[in-house]
Design a protein around this nucleic acid. Sequence first.
DNA 1: ACCCAATAGTCGGACATCCTACTATTCGGT
DNA 2: ACCGAATAGTAGGATGTCCGACTATTGGGT
Lengths: 192, 192
Amino acid sequence: MSDYWVVVVICGMAGTNASDMDLVAEARRNWIAGGLGEVDAMVSATSLARAHQIVLGRINQALTEFSLTFSRYEALALLSFARGGSMAMARMGERLQVHPTSVTSTIDRLERDGLVTRSPHPDDRRATLATLTPHGRSLHGEATKALEAIRWGMGEIGNEQLNNLNQELAHVRASGGDNVSGSIRTDAKGNS
Amino acid sequence: MSDYWVVVVICGMAGTNASDMDLVAEARRNWIAGGLGEVDAMVSATSLARAHQIVLGRINQALTEFSLTFSRYEALALLSFARGGSMAMARMGERLQVHPTSVTSTIDRLERDGLVTRSPHPDDRRATLATLTPHGRSLHGEATKALEAIRWGMGEIGNEQLNNLNQELAHVRASGGDNVSGSIRTDAKGNS
DNA sequence: ACCCAATAGTCGGACATCCTACTATTCGGT
DNA sequence: ACCGAATAGTAGGATGTCCGACTATTGGGT
């Protein structure tokens, strides 16, 4: 496994601009040079963070046109799939996997922009229902088209390869306790 | 459109707690039901965000013991590999791929905690050098051990599988303009 | 030599996220 | 029927990230 990387070391980084080098491979190099362990895991975490940064950056870029962020878009999307376009805030937090205070903050901004309204829950006076406004629903539709147009920030990666990526990420999610029963490929070919 | 929901309910989501279902697969289901496109890309972006959240969450958890965050840890690691343990802030921003103001913010906190010191650059009076203190260097060493102990948040995933993941993530990074020449496997077996 | 563009760092503002603490409400067990 | 535990939402505070604007310095072209 490890000899795949030797070539790069020989190539030398001296005088190379940061924007011109493989920063993740550079991290791997430094790690090995420092005699540190768990290099593959370190590279995975680094790569994951960088890939996330790239994809989220492109998504948020595409959403600025609608004065939205990915967080707020996700909330709109969730509501758009809910019956009546409304859902209790606590349930939104569960689905979006964020802290209750993050839901408060997100709904605050969506409400400020007229995309969502708060109303008391009819059956539980502790709870608050967030409901999509007509404007919120139409904006979600337009934003969705924009995200499809940029393929959700996944660049020119083909669907076949995206499925491979999803499989690998499902293992990570599974290791974190997520239920991935609906995401793991069960055919014999499973590439990992 | 709306009658598609009947199917979903029948599929067995009714009464199911959010923490018990595959949220990414659920998103895929909703997307297909809504007749939307680029489903694979959407699932990839969603999975990537979730995996990132899980891994970063574990990493930051392991670092709380040292009063560090992953951002600050990354800055310490970068400095620990630099000659003399010091580097101009602008170069740190390039390597860490963050905005210059984020470097200012990170160094502010590291300096406040006595892990780093600021000093004027000897050759360029515009620039500021961030230099690791002895305490900063030793704390970085301890934090690194802690991160290795939790395998950088990658759970029990084997190295073979981590390499597969890295390959897939390298494609994403490449699509974002990153140089991944040091990360792409060049042997015939290339799994994607 | 001088002026203007590029570069380095910081400040203020906007967001997203988490945590702790607090109030209001609901629900289960005695 | 009542009391304590659990739940829903919010307020305040810390951190990280970005952007635009601003100051200081450097460097290239005329």
